[in-house]
């Protein structure tokens, strides 16, 4: 299990590849890898968005994400999990979040990946502040349903 709070731009596919290569001892054990990558849009609530600032609660964020992954590991028999989340200033098309899980079978992988992501979105202490194209900024008050 690995949790990363990343303050610099990251390549989720490279991180995924690097992590899986580091876990060579698991080769042959996992039959499914489910991956979610969240990326910044350039629109929200009908407005054009030029930039976003991601704030978090250091310490609580890490601990909460660890707890989510530990719970999912027990519930879905995860062999491994990786969660990466950006903080700081980001631009449209920048990756925001990566969730990846490795399991023996696809059902657990799909369900665990979704559960970790939904829990992260509803409970992990991150907040977004959008900079709009017209120069105004605003805190995002709630996540869009999206599912």
């Amino acid at each position: 299990m690995k949790i990363v709070i990343e303050s610099e731009s990251f390549d989720p596919w490279k991180m995924l590849d690097d992590y899986q290569k580091d876990k060579a001892d698991l080769a042959g054990q996992y039959g499914a890898t489910a991956v979610f990558v969240g990326t910044m849009r350039d629109f929200n609530e009908g407005d054009d968005v030029s930039e976003m600032f991601l704030e978090h609660y250091p310490g609580m964020t890490d601990r909460h994400l660890e707890n989510i992954c530990l719970q999912a590991t027990g519930e879905y028999h995860l062999l491994e999990s990786l969660v990466v989340h950006r903080v700081g200033t980001i631009k449209p098309n920048d990756p925001i979040v990566l969730v990846a899980v490795w399991t023996a079978h696809r059902k657990q992988a799909f369900e665990a990946c979704r559960e970790i992501m939904e829990d992260l979105k509803s409970k992990a202490p991150f907040w977004k502040k959008e900079q709009l194209n017209d120069g105004q900024d605003r805190w995002v008050e709630k996540n869009t349903k999206g599912y």
Binding site: G38, M60, I96, V97, L120, K121, A124, W127, K128
Partner: peptide, 10 residues
Amino acid sequence: VAFFPPVTGG
């Protein structure tokens, strides 16, 4: 003790 609005990560 921390006070904060609904979270909006991900």
